[in-house]
Design a protein around this nucleic acid. Structure first.
Lengths: 350, 350
DNA sequence: AATAGTATTGCAAATGTTTTCATAAATTCG
DNA sequence: CGAATTTATGAAAACATTTGCAATACTATT
């Protein structure tokens, strides 16, 4: 039955089998309305019979779109980006695009290499995480005139179109929540900020908000940790066993906050009575730990979905209009934060 | 300085700028040893100056490899696959391949569609998760003679080359651990098994191991839940508030086990004294929850890395030899399991 | 110095599509 | 019924590369 071709079966093989010209076969795919329904049927039968699969590479070469979109993320491995990647992938898939995915491990030079690689594949567009990129990357994108998009971050004056959230605001909201609860002795655990404008913006906003209230953070209450639950846990243990323990911990993201939570639990601290913890992100799982993690929610799924929709629109549009979309943050209060109690304050300094 | 071309800059533009023929430029990329070092230098300068970027689509069309590998996973979103994807991506990147990623949400028909889509892009190979796929998918791969690989699962008689672990063994090991600790009243929480041979194999092995010891699981101690911490938590709460509570919970994967852990904690149960919990997978984070999750470790990173290496070898080899690699499982005993105590047994049935 | 290699380069064909233009057939209209 | 459209198809050029073959220039050998 199945007519197994040893040699490649291409559009002309189909044409021959259906007794038409290659042009007609091509048209059946690209402008079906221009070909007689009867002929179309004949052709479709031939396609079926031969097991023909269109060759996007050949299309691409002809100047048509490649049907691929490149996405370059710092890391795939961790909760944060997995969710955006999924949403972005689903979103572009709906309109027929495929996802070329690359990661650079927070190294902007590798990011450049990855973008270049994607450009070799003639992606129809390339999406990057964040707004901070090397000059070389910016130049590359500019020069090739490839549509580009920044996701995850929002800035009203971004050079690229963007879909994301305001990380400064996130930092401020988290700080204000702790401040409003009466905390004045606050510890900070953040990831490294170079090449990571998300963390950078959050942290600087935290400092500003703190300063505005006249609160300062002693050095030993400020800790830097890589992006992993276990390493954050270690860092938190160190910080929490300092001379004077803070009454609250503000963490650069939810992964770190989870690490801090586990650290506190392993030290026998009661959360939130002995220590309040707030994260940023609201990743999958943050709602489910015990107690539930208070956090500033960044709507990863919405960002990914919206980014996919708007970007494919942009790419396929005749006269594309640049856009900037700011996704709403939301303060999600769960069980890890509470009022800075007298007892708690008394507890510090021991 | 930068010679911004408005029109596309292609290999002939470079050739012109370097005063050589296009063939020579092409050779500079593909067989550098065949071209005079001096000429090569001239050409490289021209490439730099014009900002030329190779067009893989055109290469592909010529019959060369496309330099892309397709990976189709059930979901990107969750901890399990994120880790393999990362390792696989890094691994193939090292030898110059790019990753086309697609997900199907545990729907084998969508899997077929995704594979087809990747084939249109003329991927040099396609990697699938698991060994169970629709006939259509198998036929497609067979017919197109595209190298294919199954990752995550291992079976000595798999039809595709595979790199993965033995899920039956994983199920058995988990069961035996609980049994060895004296547990006889065991609850099971697993994901749905259709279109998911990992879960299927694990669950059937669990039942076999249990039966061998004459242990049976009453219906109300067997629960099915989607793949999410929060839903697993719900399911676990339901199961744990049954008439007779089991002394141990065996979970189909670590995400479910985490949900179960949080459920138990929210019910005020002491882990592991009141209830032992074991998972399968050892995902990122499993080591860090409090107490640490006992689990059967599936080495996701090793699988991804190895799969990438072997598959690219296979693809680039002149006479590829099929292979099957079984990655070792490891029992990781942490804090969520302990001996079935008298007290614990007495506690049940209440 | 003549011959036989060897190293370097160019020419042209080939790859699988899409699309413009032209042609032929069928339909509509007055 | 003939002219004017409309519909359906085919021929051929174009897209950006790679590579087999041929040509040329250079080097080594006797």
């Amino acid at each position: 039955m199945a007519n197994l071709q040893k040699g490649r079966v291409d559009i002309v093989a189909v044409a021959k089998a259906a007794n038409v010209s290659p042009s007609t076969v091509s048209r059946t795919f690209n402008h079906p309305d221009l070909v007689n329904p009867a002929t179309r049927k004949k052709i479709n039968r031939a396609i079926q019979r031969l097991g023909y699969i269109r060759n996007r590479a050949a299309q691409t070469m002809h100047g048509k779109r490649s049907g691929t979109i490149g996405l370059v993320v710092p890391t795939i491995n961790h909760a944060i980006f997995a969710e955006v990647i999924q949403a972005f992938s689903d979103s572009i898939d709906k309109v027929g695009f495929s996802l070329l995915l690359a990661s650079h491990g927070y190294d902007l030079d590798r990011e450049y290499a990855m973008v270049r690689k994607l450009l070799e594949h003639r992606v129809d567009g390339v999406a990057l995480v964040g707004l901070e990129h090397s000059d070389a990357t910016a130049r590359l994108i500019e020069q090739q005139k490839t549509p580009a998009l920044a996701i995850w971050n929002y800035a009203q004056d971004s050079s690229l179109p963007c879909v994301g959230a305001d990380n400064r605001l996130a930092g401020r909201l988290a700080t204000e929540h702790l401040l409003a609860l009466g905390h004045r002795n606050i510890g900070l655990i953040f990831p490294k900020t170079d090449g990571n404008d998300r963390a950078q913006h959050r942290l600087s906003a935290v400092h500003e908000a703190l300063a505005k209230m006249g609160v300062s953070v002693p050095d030993e209450h400020e800790s830097e940790t890589p992006y992993s639950v276990s390493q954050a846990k270690q860092a938190a243990i160190t910080l929490l066993t300092e001379q004077s323990r803070p009454t609250a911990l503000l963490c650069g993201n939810d992964v770190i906050a989870q690490g801090a939570l586990f650290a506190a639990q392993s030290l026998g601290l009661k959360i939130p009575d002995d220590l309040s913890i707030i994260g940023i992100g609201d990743f999958k799982g943050s709602a489910d730990v015990e107690p539930g993690l208070t956090t500033i929610r960044i709507p990863a799924e919405t960002i990914g979905k919206l980014a996919g929709e708007r970007f494919t629109d942009y790419i396929t549009s005749d006269d594309p209009a640049p856009f900037r979309i700011c996704c709403e943050l939301e303060r999600v209060v769960r069980g890890t934060t509470t009022l800075a109690s007298i007892g708690c304050v008394a507890n510090s300094g021991v």
